[in-house]
Write a protein that binds this DNA or RNA. Structure first.
Lengths: 99, 99
DNA sequence: GCTTTCGCTTTGCGGCGCAAAGTTCTCCGC
DNA sequence: GCGGAGAACTTTGCGCCGCAAAGCGAAAGC
């Protein structure tokens, strides 16, 4: 049946699943926008972002041109691929649990 | 958009999601069958089952009539309801990430 | 210029997943 | 019938990780 081991732990975790879902819907997300949208604390969000950046699922860009720094994130190709695979698995789980 | 907070942490956790998915597909599952199907260690499985039983998502029945004990599990009404809600949310995430 | 606010970052704690060791049986060989 | 193997859980301990509270440096207001 379904191979649950293939659920990527990095992505599956609730907060990161929500982050990845947002990143999949729009190209660029600023730190502040993610924070506001998800209602996460600063420290919580940044640790998750660092985890995703370290996994090379997300690319971080810091724009210093404005008066205040503005850090933005976007999915890498690997991140998009891993997320798609994860979503496919979730879909399989949904179907299996209704069959 | 999607309220990720409603993802039930008890269910969302990878191993327990797999357990709940199995429990949703067939009424009764013996401890040994779950273990074999999921490839979890004894200790790992029992702690998850205890968590689910404590949450009243799963009912435990110990059949002592045979020579060896045989513990079986099945979803409670609350467990089935919570799992369905979780699956609905996962489905929404799948759809959102493809829109 | 001194304080407040913004935008992250670091630190500490508590909780939990996981496997290895332990326990209590039953069965089998002798 | 007794000792050891093995089944079926159970307990314990370690290590990681999510989370929020505190920290920190730069810009903005007064």
């Amino acid at each position: 049946m379904i191979d649950f081991d293939q659920l990527d732990k990095l992505i599956h975790e609730k907060s990161r699943l929500s982050i990845m879902t947002l990143l999949a819907t729009r190209d660029d997300w600023a730190f502040q926008d993610l924070k506001a949208e998800l209602g996460l604390s600063d420290g919580n969000l940044i640790t998750h972002m660092r985890t995703l950046v370290n996994a090379a699922y997300v690319k971080e860009t810091c724009d210093e041109s404005g008066s205040r720094p503005r850090t933005t994130y976007r999915l890498t190709a690997a991140g998009r691929k891993a997320f798609k695979a994860h979503i496919d698995l979730l879909e399989a789980i949904v179907k299996a649990s209704r069959g």
